[in-house]
Design a protein around this nucleic acid. Sequence first.
DNA 1: CCTGCACATTACATCGATGTAATGTGAGAC
DNA 2: GTCTCACATTACATCGATGTAATGTGCAGG
Lengths: 333, 333
Amino acid sequence: MRATVKDVARRAGVSPKTVSNVMNGIVPVSGPTRLRVEQAMAELDYVPNLSARGLRNGRSGVIGLALPDLATPFSAELAQSIVEVAHAQGFSVQIEETGSDPHREHELMTRARANLIDGLILNPVVLKESAVQMGVALPPVVLLGEVTQQLADRVFVDSFAAARDMTLALARPGRRRIAVLGVNRGRQSATAIQRAGGYEAALQTLGIAKDESLMISCDSWTPASAAESLAEYLDANPLPEALFCFTDSMALGALNTLWKRGVRVPDDIAVAGFDDVIDGRFAVPSLTTVSFDKRAIATHALRLLTERMSDRSHGQRLVEIDYTIEERDSSKA
Amino acid sequence: MRATVKDVARRAGVSPKTVSNVMNGIVPVSGPTRLRVEQAMAELDYVPNLSARGLRNGRSGVIGLALPDLATPFSAELAQSIVEVAHAQGFSVQIEETGSDPHREHELMTRARANLIDGLILNPVVLKESAVQMGVALPPVVLLGEVTQQLADRVFVDSFAAARDMTLALARPGRRRIAVLGVNRGRQSATAIQRAGGYEAALQTLGIAKDESLMISCDSWTPASAAESLAEYLDANPLPEALFCFTDSMALGALNTLWKRGVRVPDDIAVAGFDDVIDGRFAVPSLTTVSFDKRAIATHALRLLTERMSDRSHGQRLVEIDYTIEERDSSKA
DNA sequence: CCTGCACATTACATCGATGTAATGTGAGAC
DNA sequence: GTCTCACATTACATCGATGTAATGTGCAGG
């Protein structure tokens, strides 16, 4: 049987509440008493029951992290940052996958409300408005990425501007036939819309007519799907001068397809991605990408979350994370 | 204020316990009553408090997953499988990073004992025996990977045999100067020992004398570290005929270094990895690797864990996961 | 010597769900 | 009409930690 405060109290010859006081350190406890209690805790190998504490305090010390696809390197790096930052602040992280299923997102909110989670960091895909309806009795939520029409706090990179800048960078050496990979066929994700918008804006700036045939769709944002989509595309279309993939993962798939066909990168075609994942940095050739500080995302997301946990009143707050264009070998002129 | 069983009970005109009975479905409830309660729950938007339930039942419905480095694609893919399998069984997953810090592993056990998690799936690095001492009052633990001297349940791939087979495969076209990358300088990880052992066993079978200078050390199993280690190595040593990296992540870093130096893969050197991560499949060239079913690992780990949760008695159990050698472009003869 | 005050400590109630044991309610048998 | 018996439902206690309000202790000042 596990030791409880009661056991510790009995052994130390004090009341349970005093043991609690020693642990929490808010109510002062005299030196000798504190020592006796601490020794008793050590002797009994006492570990507080977090369920009980959570019930009493209304706080579990756990935050939820919900990402669309846990298998991607980007998810992994983001999760790492969030886990580390959260841990530094005494939080544990419960991880969830929303997948393509928008229903899951709602389910998560429910689970959060079940109080096993003090707050939720959510990277939505096709977030239905109904899912995060900021009504009453909802747990604190921080959204990651491009979502419109949501009233929750949000941390994001300006995908539109970044995509625009990347397109401009790809065009600089005089490239004009610039393709994008990652446009969705069916329902567009908010992110895809932003990035496609930035791309089109850049084309306009450059005085290049938009060419629908250069916008390659891709059902899922994975290397496999990207590789396949690009292969099919190249079977039917001429090689563009540059290819801007909406994520690094897709870019890696694209690089593989290009290599298989003997297309040289960057000599025959420049390639770029988005996210700056580690594997992109070590791709062959190393991948030009939109880079941003994932640790900063984690830090701000957690700050917003904890602040909202203690004060639910203030309105929606947005934090924009800077980005840079990292020109690597895959787009060297 | 959130609705509780009491509120639901009042609205439905029954006692709290009846509401509980409706939810749990073990004690039978008559049709009409059940309907009234369900309607009341819906109307009040009732969500059970999991802290309270956890306190009462001694179960939280959460399992912990502790991995050495969350940023790696392998971790991501494994985590995905585990989260999905766990979710299918009604468990949430709390994720933790042990990093290089063996102290963290012990801290996790403590947290587990704090009852916020019902069990722990742990992929140890340099697990000190003291960390997972299977004494009393420890939560159910399933270990992943190569660990010796541990009494906990374990799911693993036979790294020794796999490394041996991979080395033999690399040698098949007559390659004899086969290097390995991933030997640690200081304390060896159990995994590194197994894989190095398999490599040496293969050399012996092949009648090739072991050459210490072909065993390249690498401080951390990341692309960056691998790329750097290999670069330093190539500055001072001739090019081997084959390079077996102890993880795909390291192999990706190695491919990048080789490419930067104009070394052609597989023409000048064959390269192989271990883990079969997605990005390896789409590497340039696609990476030969040791493949195994990550979903199977997740399934078995969860089975062992849940079985031990309900019956703590039986002895240590081991599950071995099959592997295959996937020969891809990076080692084509 | 007593009052007053500061401060450490305690008894008790509480958070929400649920197992236990007891109660209530009905149908069916004689 | 009464007596069982089965079964749905209820009152109460409980899980472990902690806030609240009350109690106890010691010391200084009058």
